[in-house]
């Protein structure tokens, strides 16, 4: 999926993550700041990458401000940001795009 503009999702509340996505310069670039960086920094990066990959996104700049979000929250926020940045409707009924 190709990103067309900046897409944002999530909040800065505790246990949430705020994802900002924009078209990249070829490849995936992640800038992460997290309250649990030491313990879960790698896990968060892995989760973001895997979610982008599952949606066929391979050219994006990701800014993630994490306040201790669980993996399921990270996935949901990344998916929503991708849909907004790619200007596609998210199918809430299924597990698709």
């Amino acid at each position: 999926m190709e990103l067309k503009k900046v897409g944002v999702s999530g909040t800065l509340e505790s246990s949430d993550v705020m994802i900002t996505l924009e078209p990249g310069n070829g490849g995936i670039e992640i800038e992460l700041s997290s309250t649990v960086e030491k313990q879960f920094g790698n896990a968060i990066r892995r989760e973001i990458l895997a979610t982008l990959e599952s949606m066929g996104v391979n050219n994006a700049r990701v800014t993630a401000v994490d306040k201790g979000a669980l993996d399921c929250v990270i996935r949901a926020r990344v998916k929503t940001a991708v849909c907004r940045a790619a200007e596609v409707e998210y199918n809430w009924g299924g597990d698709g795009q």
Binding site: V36, K38, Q39, F40, G41, N42, A43, L70, D71
Partner: peptide
Amino acid sequence: QLVGVPDPVQ
């Protein structure tokens, strides 16, 4: 199960 396994403190 809820949060995963944290990396150990260095």
